[in-house]
Simulated assay, not measured.
Amino acid sequence: MSLGNKQIMADNIKRLLKAKGLNPRQLAIALDFKYTTVNDWVNAKTYPRIDKIEMLANFFNVSKSDLVENKTEEIATTSPVQAIYDQLTPPRQAKALTYLEKQLLEQNEEETKINEVSEDIIQLYSYDYYDHPASAGTGQYLNDVRVERIELPVDIDADFVIPIKGDSMEPDYHDGDLVFIQTSVDLNDGVIGVFNYNGDAYIKQLVIDEDQAYLHSLNPAYKDMPITPETDFRIIGEVVDLYREK
């Protein structure tokens, strides 16, 4: 078996999901995987570990090679229905076709009803929520803020959620957006995060040059905030995603 081709893995998972009439979210629920992880497999962004490949193979009742090897080239075969249809006389073919069309219509109506019911069921995910906003502008306190729980219709691997106030991170982040934060004490150059800067909490881009480091706003109307030895500075966490009400 050849391992590591993310696109082949993605195509095979999608093929097997289609055969079972499932979607990625249903697969994630069935195997207790994170939806974002399954979604990354299906979109060829990441490749599952070998233990996850084994679980997938058992779930779909296929061999691991059916997941990791190219299965797109299928041998064309005549279906049993087509074989019988070809043996019928034209009048009987017409009757058979009428019956098949009726069956297809009933099937489509049933699927429509199922989809309508599914659309009404929205799965919610719970997160720790700081109701005091991080600033995309002039700064807000985050320490000693009351923590609540919030439910959102997205599954994100994050430690907590906070709202944004201000416009300094536009056009990517807007006033009122909710951002998902993974706590961290070490972020790389160019990462968007939430930072404690002289006692206030800001959402900014961390820029680390050879000569200096500073917090950068995506909105050019705002000046950079230099990080010096005198600055009371602490990394709160990395922004890993955002949620915006439609």
Score class of each variant (00 low, 15 high):
6 K>S: 07
184 S>A: 11
240 V>I: 07
88 L>Q: 02
240 V>Y: 03
29 I>R: 14
134 A>E: 07
144 D>G: 12
40 D>H: 13
137 G>Y: 10
32 D>Y: 05
96 A>R: 10
211 D>C: 01
167 D>Q: 03
212 Q>Y: 02
190 G>T: 02
177 D>L: 11
15 R>S: 09
26 Q>L: 03
224 D>W: 01
136 A>G: 13
185 V>G: 06
150 I>Q: 04
74 E>D: 09
85 Y>D: 03
8 I>D: 10
92 R>L: 09
160 F>M: 05
175 D>H: 15
229 P>Q: 11
191 V>K: 06
195 F>K: 03
104 L>N: 08
115 N>C: 00
235 I>G: 05
46 T>F: 00
17 L>H: 07
190 G>I: 02
96 A>P: 04
118 S>Q: 15
142 L>T: 11
119 E>P: 05
3 L>I: 02
193 G>N: 05
164 I>G: 09
235 I>T: 12
82 Q>C: 12
103 Q>F: 07
80 P>R: 13
93 Q>K: 14
27 L>G: 05
112 T>S: 06
144 D>C: 10
208 I>C: 01
85 Y>S: 06
153 P>V: 08
161 V>H: 01
165 K>M: 03
234 R>A: 09
26 Q>Y: 03
66 D>C: 09
241 D>F: 11
107 Q>E: 11
4 G>V: 04
9 M>R: 03
152 L>M: 10
134 A>T: 13
154 V>K: 12
42 V>F: 06
186 D>Y: 08
